[in-house]
Every structure is written in structure tokens, then in C-alpha cells.
Design a binder for these strands. Structure first.
Length: 295
DNA sequence: GGTAGACCTGGACGC
DNA sequence: GCGTCCAGGTCTACC
């Protein structure tokens, strides 16, 4: 069964997949040769299926490997549409980027969309896993959460979906530490899972909340384990680009680009991109850094 | 409001 | 093989 989904042009699958490191985190997988993105998902019906997403005329084709009920097909269309940002609009950003040599190819290269997870819960957990650790650590922790606590794929029990909030809440702090190696992040992830599982926190509602970005940012910062960097990263995934997710890498490349390599702080990174206004985060994300041209 | 130290793990490094 | 050090954001206590 193949579900065809249309994308707002310009759309190219590979740039979305390569937009950041999310594709390297379970349960995502990318087949470079086939140009196919895979994602193991637990549907609301409880069924776990592997979605195989490929470029198709005008958008993407999603193969589920088995026949899905109508409501399951609707969920797949909704979730894949969100994951790839199929309906996102970047015309205003492209217009601004046209006059900037470091972003001149943004439209031509279909830049703008950033790969995300079906749920904001999963993206928030993964963002917490990126903090204060090397990328290898993030991959290890995400992989462990999926393999230890996620529901298995019927056709291949070795593969699992990302665990639901209920599943992580049921795991408890001790198992999150010992089985997933989350360390001090375990209580943060547990508290988040419990808040979402009990309905105390409606994370998914934030996807469509029309509130101002600053208000949305405050809601995200109220989550334990989510600081300035993590909130900005999540805002980017929510399509709000008013803040730059400043991590140590950002401090390095921005310093090299505009501050002569001297130590800088987060406010100087924000200042460097201030002229991009509501597109600040996106300009930062797709900037062609001198640091890499000279290394 | 600003700052220092603790948190946790894996990897790099020196012995 | 073992011990030490370091990288990586956020939180909390303190000033």
C-alpha cells in the first residue's frame, strides 16, 4: 500500500532528511542509495509499522508494507506531512535570502524544512538527549530508549517504535538510568513523560497553538531539562525561527564568522543574526560557514 | 540578574 | 588495563 502526499513546492526529500542529525536517531533510517527514508511508528490503533518514504511526483510516496485501515492511513498522512513539513511555506525567507551570498542557494537547494518526529513529545525527549553530551551519546541514548522501551515491529521484533509517554512513564527513573544510560537526564525525561501521559501537559497542542513565539518559548522553558538552547531548537521544529539554538558549535562558527575567533556569548550570536528577524534561526541553520570553507 | 559548581557518560589520552 | 581529564547544556544555590 502506497499513500501519496503532495508537498508545497519547492520540495526535495534529501535536503529535508539531511537538514540536521535527527535522521541518525532511532527509529529513523536513511537509505542513501535508494533515496528512501524509513521510520518505525506506533499508530494510535496500537499497530507498529515501518513507513518507507520516497520522492514522488509533487511530493512523496509512503509505503506501509501492509494494508492500513482508513483511520490509520489518515494518521500516516498527517504524521508524515508534519515530519517532512510538506505544507510549510518559505517564500518570504527565500526572498530575503536572495540578497545574501551565504544563503543565495536556499531556494534552489530546497532549504527550509527541518526533519522532525511525528510527536513533539519525541522531539522534546530527543532534544534533551542532545544536551551536555557528544552526538555519539545522543545516538546511544535515543537508540536505547527505542530498543528497550518502544513497541516492537510485528514483522521484525528487533526493530521498535519510539516509546510513548505512557511507556517511558512506566519505565521509571531507575530503568531510564540503567537501561538507557540517560544519567542525570533520566528524571527530566521521566517528569516530561509523566506530565504528557497524565494529560497535565498538552505538548502536541503546541504544534497548532497560535500564541506568540515568546509565550511559546516560556511554555517550553517550563519543562525541566529544557533551557535556552533546547527551547530554541524546539521552536525551530515548530516552525518558529525567532531564536537561534546557541550551543558550543554555534559559539565557535559565529565567532569565527564575525568576531575574529574571540570567545563570545549567546547574545552575540543572536545579535549577529538580528537583521533576519522572524527568520533568524533559519538563516543561522542554513548559513554557509566560512569556518568550514577554510578548514 | 549574574555566576560557580554539580550533574552523567563515553571517549581520548597518558602511564 | 587503569586512572584522569574533557566535552556537552541545564539546574540550583549563592551572591
Amino acid at each position: 500500500m502506497i499513500i501519496k502526499l503532495e508537498a508545497r513546492p519547492p520540495f526535495c526529500l534529501r535536503p529535508v532528511v539531511k537538514s540536521h542529525g535527527w535522521v541518525a536517531l532511532a527509529p529513523y533510517a536513511w537509505d542513501e542509495e535508494a533515496g528512501r527514508l524509513s521510520y518505525t511508528i506506533r499508530l494510535d490503533s496500537g499497530r507498529v509499522v515501518e513507513l518507507r518514504i520516497s520522492r514522488a511526483v509533487g511530493g512523496v510516496g509512503v509505503e506501509a508494507g501492509e494494508v492500513l485501515a482508513d483511520d490509520e492511513q489518515q494518521q500516516v498522512a498527517r504524521d508524515v506531512g508534519w515530519m517532512l513539513g510538506l505544507d510549510q511555506e518559505f517564500a518570504a525567507f527565500y526572498e530575503l535570502a536572495r540578497g545574501e551570498a551565504k544563503l543565495a542557494l536556499a531556494k534552489e537547494q530546497c532549504q527550509g524544512r527541518i526533519l522532525r518526529s511525528p510527536t513533539l513529545f519525541e522531539d522534546t525527549v530527543k532534544t534533551i538527549l542532545t544536551t551536555n553530551t557528544a552526538w555519539s551519546g545522543t545516538m546511544r541514548m535515543a537508540g536505547a530508549l527505542v530498543s528497550k522501551f518502544g513497541s516492537p515491529l510485528a514483522a521484525d521484533a528487533a526493530r521498535h517504535a519510539f516509546p510513548t509517554a505512557d511507556q517511558l512513564a512506566a519505565a521509571g527513573e531507575q530503568l531510564l538510568r540503567s537501561e538507557a544510560g540517560l544519567g542525570y537526564r533520566a528524571p527530566y525525561v521521566l517528569a516530561l513523560a509523566e506530565a504528557v501521559a497524565t494529560g497535565e501537559l498538552d505538548l502536541e497542542g503546541l504544534k497548532t497553538a497560535g500564541m506568540p513565539t515568546e509565550q511559546l518559548r516560556k511554555r517550553l522553558l517550563a519543562i525541566k531539562g529544557v533551557g535556552a538552547y533546547a527551547a530554541a531548537n524546539l521552536l525551530m521544529l515548530l516552525g518558529r525561527y525567532d531564536f537561534v539554538p546557541v550551543d558550543s558549535w554555534a559559539l565557535k562558527v559565529v565567532s569565527h564568522e564575525w568576531y575574529g575567533g574571540r570567545p563570545i556569548d549567546a547574545s552575540e550570536v543572536e545579535e549577529a543574526f538580528a537583521r533576519w528577524g522572524e527568520w533568524k534561526g533559519l538563516a543561522y541553520w542554513f548559513w554557509s560557514w566560512s569556518y568550514f570553507e577554510e578548514v
